[in-house]
């Protein structure tokens, strides 16, 4: 579904992705973790072309990202992206946030899109917030609307860029619960997160990155109980200390 083959990326002189080779199968859930600045956000932002790669092949849903022949706008409709800062449209209600892309991109009739939008918002536990503006919602609620907004496009892939990092601790689990439900329905997911409970519960694979390279990759079981490298051991000791 997603395949990186020797992908490199630079920000000016900074080599942010180093020879990335990684393959994600349909229905697989992959958690990407690593210290800050390790390139994990950049990695998933390349998948829907929010960042350009400079070298190597990146194939998503059988289409080459960055190839002029690939219609990126079309490819992006198949890829949901959840941002750390939610990025809901502040001038639109929760329901309008969910129905915007389906009505304008997929050309779904408005009534049908609104029905689907209400169902999705109910599914993420916001049945009473259809007409609320983002500024009237808590961080956890906003992130759940953002997930519903992605699901509204019925994507084949969902990418999450530190979806719980901007949340107060008491709101993290409500967002993780929604993500677990999405994963259990068989969505192909790549999730940049340090929520190791989530990784243990739904991920088939954990990828550990450091300084722009994939250092280690394995099942959550292997990664947490027997990390193979010094860097992953040092990282785990820091995030699992408390």
């Amino acid at each position: 579904m997603i395949e990186f083959r020797g992908v490199n990326k630079w920000f000016g002189p900074l080599h942010v992705l180093k020879d990335i080779t990684l393959s994600v199968e349909p229905r697989e859930v992959v958690v990407v973790c690593g210290p800050s600045g390790s390139g994990k956000s950049t990695l998933i932002r390349c998948i829907n072309g929010l960042e350009a790669t400079q070298d190597g092949d990146l194939v998503v849903d059988d289409k080459r990202v960055g190839d002029p022949a690939t219609n990126m706008t079309l490819l992006r409709t198949e890829i949901g992206f959840v941002f750390q800062q939610f990025n809901l449209y502040p001038h639109k209600t929760a329901l309008e946030n969910v129905t915007l892309a389906p009505t304008h991109v997929r050309k779904t009739p408005r009534a049908e899109a609104e029905k689907a939008g209400r169902e999705l918002l109910a599914k993420v536990g916001l049945a009473d917030k259809f007409n609320a503006y983002p500024s009237e919602l808590s961080g956890g609620q906003q992130q759940r609307v953002a997930i519903a907004r992605c699901l509204g496009m019925r994507p084949k892939i969902m990418l999450f860029d530190e979806p719980t990092s901007a949340l107060d601790p008491e709101m993290i689990s409500e967002v993780l619960d929604v993500m677990i439900a999405v994963a259990e329905e068989g969505m192909t997911m790549m999730v940049v997160t340090h929520e190791m409970g989530f990784a243990r519960r739904v991920a088939q694979r954990v990828v550990f990155m450091d300084q722009g390279a994939i250092v280690e990759s394995g099942t959550p079981e292997e990664f947490f109980s027997a990390p193979r490298t010094d860097r992953s051991r040092a990282f785990l000791s820091k995030i699992l200390r408390h």
Binding site: L50, T73, L88, Y89, H91, V105, M153
Partner: peptide, 27 residues
């Protein structure tokens, strides 16, 4: 208009005109 707004619109597959009309200009 914050960059995140444009990225969100981009990520959901809105065209340039749709991004302008629906997301950027109203804000």
């Amino acid at each position: 208009v914050p960059k995140g707004q444009i990225e969100a619109a981009l990520a959901s597959g809105l065209s340039l005109w749709q991004r302008m009309r629906q997301v950027v200009l109203p804000q």
